[in-house]
């Protein structure tokens, strides 16, 4: 099992958001977490990444059988957990290439792989950038600074491509994307998913799932999974709206 979430309760600012969430993900699987606003979708993504503002009240998260909650965010990343941010952060003054090389080398150091110097890394980055059709001009620019919404999301997937995670959690990666950017980002993810990794798509809308087809769909309402099914569940949701499952959950 790649990821096991067991009876998870999570609070932020004293307010409990996740209330007994269970989830199991195996390698090679794509899971979609859907749900209305405020249902706890993004909370789940942030807890997996280790955001310090979220407090786990109860339950556990196992990553490849080990306690994920014991690890700091950077340790989780080096172990192979990746979250693509809904709102990628701008880092002025730090170039994309410099940032990505540091991240890549930290991971290599951890896994005993070969660290790359700037020239070697540039070659690797050029290869990876093709996955999200990104112009090498972006390498020199400060991380996300002045990027459009679509460029920021593509940059997240580029980071995923470079870091090659075992588990990728994509938090509302489709939000704010026009149709072309959505296609590019989705194709990027499709190229990166494999039998060796798992992908979690956190999304409000079904349209992303036209491009990245999930093996499982989980519907979250009020901090719990209230319905689960295959890809057809997303279509049903699109048609009937969330009230239908909310009612089912009650």
């Amino acid at each position: 099992m790649l990821l096991e979430v067991k009876d998870l309760y999570v609070a932020i600012d004293g307010k409990t958001i996740l209330k007994g969430l269970n989830l199991q993900i195996k390698k090679g699987e794509v899971h979609a977490i859907m749900g209305p606003n405020g249902s706890g979708k993004s909370t789940l993504a942030k807890v997996l990444a280790g955001h310090p503002s979220y407090e786990v009240k109860k339950g556990e998260i196992l990553f490849e059988g080990n306690d994920l909650l014991e690890l700091e965010p950077d340790e989780r990343a080096r172990e192979g957990v990746f979250m693509a941010f809904q709102y990628p952060v701008e880092v002025p003054g730090v170039s994309n290439a410099q940032f990505l090389r540091l991240a890549y080398n930290e991971k290599m150091k951890h896994s005993g792989g070969e660290e790359l110097d700037p020239l070697e890394f540039d070659d690797l980055l050029r290869e990876k950038a093709k996955i999200v059709e990104m112009d090498p001009q972006f390498f020199k620019r400060s991380v996300n600074e002045g990027f459009s919404g679509g460029e920021k999301k593509r940059n997240e997937i580029l980071q995923m491509a470079v870091l090659d995670p075992k588990l990728a959690v994509l938090d509302e990666t489709d939000s704010g994307l026009d149709i072309d950017a959505l296609r590019i980002v989705s194709e990027g993810v499709n190229k990166l998913k494999s039998e060796e990794n798992g992908v979690v798509l956190v999304t409000h809308y079904q349209r992303l799932l036209n491009y990245i087809v999930p093996d499982f769909v989980h519907v979250l309402a009020d901090g719990k999974i209230v319905k689960e099914g295959g890809k057809e569940l997303a279509l049903e949701l699109e048609e009937k709206g969330y009230d239908w499952v909310k009612a089912a959950g009650n």
Partner: peptide
């Protein structure tokens, strides 16, 4: 900003 960099594996 700090959290973002940590999630990319920087200590």
């Amino acid at each position: 900003e700090l959290f973002y960099l940590l999630t990319r594996g920087l200590n």
